[in-house]
Write a protein that binds this DNA or RNA. Sequence first.
DNA 1: GCCAACGTTGGC
DNA 2: GCCAACGTTGGC
Length: 140
Amino acid sequence: MQFWLVKSEPFKYSWQQLLIDGSTCWDGVRNYQARNNLQAMRECDKAFFYHSNEGLAIVGIVEICRSSYPDPTADNPRWLAVDVRPICTLKKAVCLHEIKANPKLSNMAMLKQGRLSVCPISLSEWQEILNMGETKIDMD
DNA sequence: GCCAACGTTGGC
DNA sequence: GCCAACGTTGGC
């Protein structure tokens, strides 16, 4: 099981919208590094859902429910998409400010490379953020 | 293969 | 709205 973090601008696609939709196609990624991360995702991997630009916080947890396939919104088959579905909303959203202030999270990929929209997360980072979000989830 | 110019993302 | 940090493009 691998852990990830995916970013979305709430204007474009918000957590609330994902809860309404029940699942969504995570498409539109046009960056090779992010694409490679999408390719590495497997069904049942978990990811944090982060609101960029406005919100600036991790607000929820999603599960990858379909591994990568060609992005239907791309004219070139090199771009990939996955499907995700919401698992739960964090009891307490974890804002970027708190992430930056936590020394245990100083190596996070999302901090090292701010523009990367799909980042890997280590198990210890995953657990630390869950604690900060006062949230527990079942790992089936 | 280098690098300048340009475009995009995302925090502030 | 600005700017830093990239990534991409295209001329040479």
